[in-house]
């Protein structure tokens, strides 16, 4: 992949995060649905072990929910891009 292709494909990922993620279905996912239906959802609703900086994909301090999700999505997409790329670079050394 050359630089241009890397930027284009990262751009596609960012577009998905910005444009599509704010319109994601708010319904529970498969596991949450099963947990709710079968009555064990509350087991997972205690305090998390570690405090997360951006809980539930909502960037803190932004009032508009869709914008907060999009900003969280962009942040996460860039972070994991750096992690994946960085891991590969380190492994190759």
């Amino acid at each position: 992949m050359n630089k241009k292709e890397i930027l284009i494909s990262l751009g596609i990922a960012l577009l998905v995060a910005i444009v599509l993620s704010p319109f994601a279905s708010p319904h529970p996912d498969g596991l949450e649905r099963v947990a709710e239906d079968k009555g064990f959802l509350e087991k997972g609703e205690g305090e998390p072990l570690v405090a997360s900086p951006i809980p539930d994909y909502t960037f803190p301090g932004i009032h508009n929910e869709k914008v907060a999700t999009a900003v969280a999505g962009v942040t996460g997409t860039l972070i994991v891009f750096g992690l994946g790329y960085g891991l590969a670079k380190v492994l190759k050394k």
Partner: peptide
Amino acid sequence: TIPLMGVMSAFIFAAQMVNFP
């Protein structure tokens, strides 16, 4: 493959945010 690991991480993360009904 080195940049592809970054690109795939980014794409899969973003795509996982998009819950479909």
